[in-house]
């Protein structure tokens, strides 16, 4: 299949970027990234600079791949990362527009690669359970209701790719943050510091310059792991109960 690609090219973080148009011959069994590999091989053969895009596991789990394809983070297929998107979902002769994730908190580094370290800093602010190695009791000491554990897992399935932020018209990180808050708050082990966690993570999220959630749900629609906005409501609950209900004044 013959494709026309319009790809965002940008030399460096502060350089001016623009769209470049390329033609590429693809095969329907290829993954989207393999199609870009083919393009890059052709560019290298012409001694041109290949398109920089981030990727690693190519199994849809590491969360490294990150582009916006025809206006959608990770492309048009629901529940699919770019690396798992296959060319059979595109038409022969189609023009595909490829852009980086865009948000003020995700500065472009080069071409399609963006800096997502803001998400790490949010986790560092409190996205964990404070337990030192060796301090744990027997794993079966606290039973956890199967449905609750499953619920927690659904939230924990977040791969930290940032598609929710890229998709949100407000560039809000609430789905990402709420997934971690919900994952941990639902488990008895994480419940203990749930209030402190919600406070700290929201504070960091605000510092990083993400937008505010106006419940548009574009995040859930574009999330490759189908993380639900139910988690955002849970985060709001946790935050309200800690900001207004807890006696800790900090």
């Amino acid at each position: 299949m013959k494709l026309t690609l319009k790809i965002w090219r940008q030399k460096a973080p502060n350089a001016k970027g623009r769209f470049e148009t390329y033609q590429v011959e693809a095969n329907p069994h290829m993954s989207f990234l393999e199609m870009l590999d083919v393009l890059n091989e052709e560019l290298i053969a012409k001694k041109e600079e290949p398109v920089v895009f981030e990727h690693d596991c190519r199994e849809g789990i590491c969360g490294t791949c990150s582009m916006v394809i025809n206006g959608e983070p990770h492309g048009p297929m629901a529940g699919t990362t770019t690396c798992q998107l296959h060319m059979r979902h595109f038409r022969d002769g189609e023009t595909i527009v490829i852009e980086p994730f865009r948000a003020s908190a995700f500065p472009v580094m080069k071409d399609l690669a963006v800096d997502r370290s803001s998400m790490d800093r949010i986790i560092q602010a409190g996205g964990y359970i404070s337990v030192n190695t060796g301090a744990a009791q027997d794993a079966n000491a606290i039973p956890v209701d199967k449905d609750t554990a499953a619920h927690s897992f659904d939230a924990a399935a977040c791969i930290g790719c940032g598609a929710c932020i890229a998709a949100c018209p407000n560039a809000s990180a609430m789905l990402f943050v709420s997934a971690k808050v919900a994952h941990l708050a639902l488990l008895p082990q994480g419940k203990v510091e749930a209030k402190r966690r919600a406070q700290a993570m929201v504070k960091q999220m605000d510092l990083e310059g993400f937008g505010m959630c106006s419940n548009i749900t574009a995040c859930e629609a574009e999330c490759p792991k189908g993380i639900s906005v139910e988690n955002i409501a849970r985060l709001n609950r946790e935050y309200l109960s800690s900001a207004l209900g807890s006696e800790t004044v900090a």
């Binding site: 319009k6 965002w8 970027g17 769209f19 916006v68 025809n70 206006g71 959608e72 527009v97 852009e99 865009r102 948000a103 003020s104 908190a105 998709a167 018209p169 407000n170 560039a171 809000s172 310059g209 993400f210 937008g211 505010m212 548009i216 749900t217 574009a218 995040c219 859930e220 629609a221 574009e222 639900s228 906005v229």
Partner: peptide
């Protein structure tokens, strides 16, 4: 401001609900 000055060239408004 959070969204940034550079807008998407293709705009899709897909929402979950």
């Amino acid at each position: 401001k959070a969204r940034g000055s550079q807008k998407y060239a293709v705009k899709v408004n897909k929402v979950a609900d």
